[in-house]
Design a protein around this nucleic acid. Structure first.
Length: 377
RNA sequence: GCCGCGUCCGCAACGAGGU
């Protein structure tokens, strides 16, 4: 059991769904029935791998020999994968709504950006510990309410490094660099995340000298730290230094790649960007989207068209990127045809075509479209 | 029936689209 438990855990951590399924089958074929403990780990693993349906199947197979852990993992499986409604239903069905369950739901609400729901859920909690309060600090700051974020932070009696980092990021994302660095200097303890958050703040404001000085003085660095540094210099146009960092970092991931790629694309070095893209071993939908965006940014509409045809993944972002490319070159006929071919037209594509018409003084067509939009913001 | 043990159970930093 301990052996299987470790194997399942590592699949969850690596988000390796195929391997996770393999081990699941291995346990089933061993003949013995699955203990609650092992099943819980499977539920957790499927949730982490983005497969809430499989998580539910394992949970149902337990037929009532569930524990609080089973319910919490099931809840997390839906909450973390964007199924907020079903997460709420699971929460209502739970025999015991413990602190962890509340916090899981609170976090999901906060991620989805419904700040009002977050607040009312928080207020309905029988007891809020530091973790719940930290999520609320984050939620207040994300809705640009620094006053409430700071008030909550100051009222806490169990502030930890997460609380400090959350309030720091809150000020940083709301454009307050001075306050951010003041908070940083007052922090009683700092993690690599806190250091990297401060680095991100300098990067966001284009303070490259300070960013570099901070980076050199950091007691620890991880991949994210390096990625932020690469991104800071790439978006300033210093691609030589950015590329040096890319080569110097111990291990690269898609984020590192993306930061450098975006720098090349935005500075007009399309050839370098494409070379980099060809070198990327695993291209996810975002990587393809960035390559498409690079074609559009550099006005290479034919490259964009053929790329769009052969891309193995697409989503609403890639469709809207393609649409923006056609609109940029005023290919209105193709733009309209593409628009109606979009599988799930979100508010961004609608707005894009409406503004495409109005920018070309075709107010009649723009207004017609505006009136039939499913939602408006 | 009681007790104990058992799961990184939940929180912070980095990548693509419109106004």
């Amino acid at each position: 059991t301990g052996y299987y438990a470790e194997l399942i855990k590592s699949c969850g951590a690596a988000r390796d769904l195929a391997e996770g399924r393999k081990i699941h089958r291995l346990i089933q074929s061993s003949g013995q029935s699955c203990s609650t403990f092992l099943a819980n780990r499977l539920v957790e693993m499927y949730g982490r791998c983005g497969a809430p349906g499989d998580a539910l199947a394992v949970f149902n197979a337990l037929r009532g020999s569930t524990s609080q852990f089973s319910w919490n993992f099931l809840l997390a499986a839906f909450a973390r994968n964007g199924h907020l409604l079903q997460a709420k239903q699971i929460f209502d069905k739970m025999p015991e709504q413990n602190l962890v369950a509340y916090t899981t739901l609170l976090s999901a609400c906060s991620q989805s950006g419904h700040s009002h729901d977050v607040k009312s859920l928080f207020d309905s909690m029988p007891y809020a510990d530091a973790i719940a309060q930290n999520i609320m600090i984050h939620a207040f700051a994300a809705s640009r309410d620094l006053i409430k974020a700071l008030a909550l932070f100051q009222s806490m009696d169990q502030r930890n490094v997460y609380s400090w980092t959350s309030i720091l990021v809150g000020f940083s994302k709301n454009g307050k660099l001075d306050d951010t660095s003041k908070i940083f200097s007052k922090m009683p303890q700092r993690s690599v995340v806190s250091w990297t958050a401060m680095l991100t703040a300098y990067a966001r404001f284009g303070h490259l000298v300070q960013a570099r000085r901070l980076f050199d003085s950091m007691p620890a660095r991880n991949e994210v730290t390096w990625n932020v540094l690469i991104g800071a210099f790439a978006s300033s146009g210093d691609l030589d230094f950015s590329h040096q960092c890319f080569d110097a970092m111990p291990e690269r991931n898609v984020f590192s790649w993306g930061a450098l790629f975006d720098g090349y694309s935005r500075s007009g070095q399309f050839g370098r960007a494409r070379e980099l893209f060809d070198l990327l071993p695993f291209k996810d939908v975002i990587a393809w989207g960035m390559m498409l965006s690079a074609c559009v940014q550099n006005s290479r509409i034919e490259d964009a068209r053929s790329l769009f045809q052969l891309m193995p993944h697409s989503n609403s972002v890639t469709w809207s990127t393609m649409l923006s490319g056609l609109l940029k070159l005023s290919e209105m006929g193709d733009a309209v045809r593409l628009f109606w071919a979009v599988p799930d037209r979100d508010i961004v594509v609608w707005t894009m075509l409406v503004s495409g018409f109005s920018a070309r003084r075709d107010l009649e067509a723009g207004r017609k479209l505006f009136e039939v939009m499913p939602q408006q913001d």
